[in-house]
Design a protein around this nucleic acid. Structure first.
Lengths: 134, 134
DNA sequence: CTTCCTGCAAAATGTTTGCATATCC
DNA sequence: GGATATGCAAACATTTTGCAGGAAG
């Protein structure tokens, strides 16, 4: 499904900026920040980007990702997966699979304080081969 | 080992605020923010708390933890473990064990971009039994 | 007595809000 | 036409930096 249809399907208006944002998000291979999107999408105000990213996330079209810095990143809400981030240069690898849901069930079973687990956040940090050579 | 000895062992000065901070950190059952520590430790400037938390983390006495909000939290660097956070009331459960290191090795083996993985971040988000009843 | 730590003020960063105008359906 | 989205300015929250004075070893 293309961007415009995805938006309308969720009851969101398909404004040009929003369509561009969603398309850019789905085209990006790594999670992007509002600031990065602002540079990429000409004409859209940074505030609009913030609002739209939140809106996409709230409607299930994007997912929030947090690395070790203080900026919130978003990625297309297709497959659920995690990342491997180089703490030196910031390059990001995607991990294609996520076996954590199994662990999630175990964790919930052991806890008598929690009724449900809906989400998790898992990221790995290390050094890429390029940075390791220096 | 007590706070003062731990600090000196790392080559850090055992100033009263720092000793108090480290003691409070080790006494706390959940990750705390600079702001929370500031309220807890009377007389210390918030900036000093920020600097000391960073310093403790840099010397391996504390570890950074990030939940879903924008504040950085720290916890005592004893056992490595993860958390289960209620997205409604914020209550935190500790998961006693971490089996992710095994996964870490697998992940590294599959990646040809990365030379090493030194760290990971895993938190679960859900609803606690109290909040689930409402 | 030197190095490191602290407080204060001020800046920087990332994000949110209010409101009037413009746009989509 | 009515609800929703946008831009602009301004507020906000969290964290960082500079610098001069103070304390630890």
């Amino acid at each position: 499904m293309e961007a415009e249809a995805l938006l309308k399907d969720k009851g969101l208006r398909a404004t040009p900026h929003r369509v561009a944002l969603l398309a850019a998000l789905y085209a990006s291979s790594r999670p992007v920040s509002a600031e990065e999107m602002h540079k990429k999408i000409s004409g859209a105000d940074l505030v609009t980007i913030y609002r739209n990213l939140q809106s996409l996330a709230a409607h299930g079209l994007a997912r929030e990702v947090r690395f070790k810095d203080s900026t919130v990143r978003y990625e297309a809400a297709g497959l659920h997966h995690h990342h491997l981030v180089c703490t030196t240069c910031g390059i990001v690898d995607e991990l294609p699979e996520c076996d954590i849901h199994l662990l999630e069930k175990e964790v919930l079973k052991k806890s008598d304080t929690f009724a449900s687990i809906d989400e998790h956040q898992l990221e790995f940090f290390g050094t890429c081969t390029v940075c390791a050579k220096r």
